[in-house]
Design a protein around this nucleic acid. Structure first.
Lengths: 135, 135
DNA sequence: ATGACTGTATTATATAGCTAATACAGTTCG
DNA sequence: CGAACTGTATTAGCTATATAATACAGTCAT
């Protein structure tokens, strides 16, 4: 079960969004799998010293993404069907990338430059994203 | 001189940032050149129906980027050294790409997958590209 | 059924960001 | 000079956002 024990106590941006990213990263990396239970709002809130509603907001956001299932009264759990995950990834990837590719081509960049820059930014993003992506 | 006459009255995000992007785009595209005068804060504010300070904030932001020069009491003008122009273009490209990279990382894609997809979409865009991409 | 847990909803408070009101100061040109 | 422009600084208000306080309702094991 995801324990949040290594969730960074401090970081950029609102707590609830950092929680969302934390769980998303866990799912994306395969560390959290379909059906895994999540600790209750109150447990996480006590661990992090924030209000239960802050955790609730994170869980709710994840639920709207289809990544979490909650039943009133019972524990929440992660929902990751392989098909849904693959479909989601593909959709997001293509949408994002197509717009970007067109913008870069319009600005006169050439293919090699673009690939080089892309790779560099990717690595920079990994550095910024410390804590959540473990490998 | 940049007149702001075709500045869209409605759009996403704060007015001052839309103004900043508007000027940046003009510079990046070459439509606005080094030394070109900018209309005064009050003129633009009257045209758009916002407070002069909102325009001031935009101009100030542009000045911090080194794209505008202001002398207290005199009209402001655009400052575009070749280096600044190159830097601006690179920056716009980076911003575009950064958003995409973050989205892809969030979706759990790994580096090689991402580069591969990027290259493929780039080539697809070239094949499609016979009309002008404009907007 | 009861008690201790779970999720949910409503409302309040604090804070940050954007815009406005207003006053002040410098430049230009007759 | 002085009038009409220019840019600048300070302050206040408004809105959106993030978090908290609190109360309510469902689940589950004993």
């Amino acid at each position: 079960m995801l324990t949040f024990s290594d969730f960074p106590r401090e970081g950029e941006g609102p707590v609830y969004l950092r929680l969302v990213r934390y769980v998303r990263a866990g799912v994306a990396s395969g560390a959290v799998r379909d059906g895994d239970e999540l600790p209750s709002r109150r447990v996480v809130s006590a661990l992090l010293g924030v209000n239960p509603n802050t955790v609730q907001r994170a869980y709710r956001t994840l639920e709207e993404e289809g990544l979490v299932v909650s039943r009133s009264g019972a524990k929440s759990c992660v929902s990751v069907t392989p098909e849904a995950l693959a479909a989601l990834r593909l959709r997001l990837q293509r949408e994002e990338l197509e717009k970007t590719v067109l913008a870069l081509r319009r600005s006169g960049m050439d293919r090699d430059e673009a690939l080089e820059l892309f790779g560099r930014l990717w690595d920079e993003a990994r550095e910024v994203e410390e804590g959540v992506t473990e490998e």
